[in-house]
Nucleic acid binder design. Structure first.
Lengths: 357, 357
DNA sequence: TTCTGGCACTCTGCCCAGTTGAGTGCCAGG
DNA sequence: CCTGGCACTCAACTGGGCAGAGTGCCAGAA
């Protein structure tokens, strides 16, 4: 095999000029990324040619490395050390040199089986996040299915005291939101029943963002005396709908942070801090493209504390609409193909599970 | 000052024999704990007498140290190093040598003010746990008010499809549990209303554990044709009540783990793993005495991964009954008086807030 | 033109010994 | 029973020397 490719390479090289060189340089970069991800140590020219049959000598590889460094894809911690990929190098690797590694059939079966055991929405999310953390051996984040894309399954009003109601909103994704409502005037059972019926009649099945539009004129249909109470209920309902920032997320695998690297406390601290800030995580997931998988590497991440990490995220949902995002956070030096494969597979199966339930 | 106490000490010492010595040894232990907690470094005899006016010479302190070590309260990492307290030493310190350090008035005001801003139960818990983490600079854990001690505020039944109901249980602590109910036969609105009214009439205000007893005979009051449906609803309700293991907890301050010590990755990893296991944390809090503050130190903790940590926990609740637990987890080398003060104060104020709302 | 082998060079990491200094234990004397 | 003094131990730091990995460059081969 190496015997075949080597003379071939030589023959070709004498004829064309630019392309084979570039191709080999890319191969070198790919090899560097793969080795560095495996060993966590700067990789030198000699080790490279030994472990990948590149068909050229270390000296040649050195030249390519010098060029790659010149262009900013790799970097030397110090003279006479091996090379490490830069963020730019990883970016090129992800974009052009790597293929998403699909899960094996047994793995897929295991994922599906594990997720199918879930009993309710909380459990689905909990299982998903744990699974993802375990598969990737990194920190996993799963966002609860957002209210935005869901539809109204049922709106319930419960009278607690004459002027105090409880409003319960149930979505098709199984999520439940409840709010207290303080009415300006007592609300009788008749009015309550009427309101409940109309709310469900008009808004049932609607996408949540459309609900305010649909219900806009509702108060006009009631007796003038009842209108203040109806308006109050509506405003609380709209508020609950608007409060998308109440999006919840779930984390798992923080213990995997210990596998981050050697320069520990410095790297890990800001990451832990970021993980505690729901806002940061939500923004992180929010920036994910809706359908395609998003990979952000090192300094591509806006939040400073995560500049030494990479984030692989993707939307998931029942049907073809994505209702929420999930992803993993790991060191820039991560197994991108494997991670992407796991993330994609998990997202796909959660979507299926949600669609079924 | 030192001049006064020193001759005095000598005069007294010539007369009685045992007690002053023991007292001084304890003082030495206290000083060692305080210094070690401050500096994180083994503390020697000379430094001790310099920083605390013990009124005796380093040589004397050395003798005391030897005795303390003999009895297992302190320990030397290696010959010719200072001493560090053992778990047993901390235990003695906590039991007999330290007083809970009360919060200052401004601190108390700040706590109260911060917690008062909460809008619902989730927010109360979230604020509490963050506050506790910030005050103690350690990992904080707060358990949601448990269902066991709460009472029923309202039970709601919502018909989703003819045979599918949603059961919503609202407790006086503001917690909401919902369950799906698949009925064996269609349930009409009349039956539903009747059942709802009776449920609330009979169980409203009851302590949750008493509910099954109170409702035991409920099916007998309905038409035979309706009894299967009623029984189904009841069994789902009872199941929800019994499912105390669905107790939720909230964490904050994991970033403070980075302040743990120098021998990092080894110590921190098992702790992070433990923190992800709700079961472990629940058991940890569960072992807390109901009213008094509990301090568990190092190997006193059953769970192996937490053997290098200490846990300070206490129950909190509205009124004088404790409905849940909260606490902090930190290195055994922690500021016990300060931590205990913070934990106690926070627990007290959460209790008040819950009682008010 | 492009690759290759060879060579000199530059670092880091490691080992070794020597030194420093904090801290101890013990003992004789107040 | 406390104290000062003394000899001892040991971790931590220092500096020199050495090995090894890795590079860059250059002249020669294909």
């Amino acid at each position: 095999m190496p015997d075949d490719s080597k003379p071939d390479g030589r023959l070709i090289d004498t004829r064309p000029s630019v392309r084979p060189l570039d191709e080999r340089r890319l191969a070198v970069l790919r090899a560097i990324v793969q080795d560095y991800v495996g060993t966590e140590e700067p990789v030198g020219s000699k080790a490279l040619v030994e472990r990948h049959n590149l068909g050229v000598s270390p000296a040649t590889v050195r030249n390519d490395m010098a060029a790659l460094e010149e262009e900013g894809y790799i970097h030397q911690p110090h003279t006479s050390a091996g090379r490490i990929p830069t963020d730019k190098g990883y970016r090129l690797f992800v974009d052009r040199l790597a293929e998403v590694k699909p899960m094996t059939a047994p793995e897929r079966r295991a994922i599906r089986h594990f997720l199918e055991g879930a009993v309710d929405l909380d459990d689905v999310v909990a299982r998903t996040v744990r699974l993802l953390a375990q598969l990737t051996r990194q920190v996993a984040v799963v966002q609860y299915p957002s209210l935005t894309r869901s539809t109204v399954r049922h709106i319930e009003l419960v009278s607690l005291t004459p002027t105090k109601l409880m409003l319960v909103l149930i979505t098709n994704t199984g999520r439940v939101e409840q709010r207290m409502v303080d009415c300006p005037a007592p609300v009788g059972e008749a009015l309550l029943g009427d309101l409940r019926a109309r709310l469900n009649g008009m808004a049932g099945g609607c996408r949540l963002p459309e609900v305010p539009t649909v219900l806009e004129d509702l108060p006009a249909g009631f007796e003038p005396a009842d209108r203040p109470a109806v308006s109050t209920v509506l405003s609380v309902l709209f508020e609950a709908l608007a409060e998308q920032n109440e999006e919840r997320i779930m984390l798992a695998g923080t213990a995997n942070l210990t596998r981050f690297g050697h320069d520990f406390p410095l790297t890990i601290r800001p990451v832990l801090e970021a993980l505690e800030e729901q806002v940061v995580l939500l923004r992180l997931l929010g920036e994910t493209a809706d359908s395609a998988m998003t990979v952000r590497i090192g300094h591509e991440i806006a939040y400073e504390g995560l500049n030494s990490t990479s984030v692989v995220s993707v939307g998931y949902g029942s049907g073809d609409q994505s209702v929420a995002k999930l992803g993993v956070i790991g060191p820039t030096r991560m197994d991108y193909p494997g991670t992407m494969g796991a993330v994609r597979a998990v997202a796909r199966y959660v979507g299926q599970i949600l669609a079924e339930s």
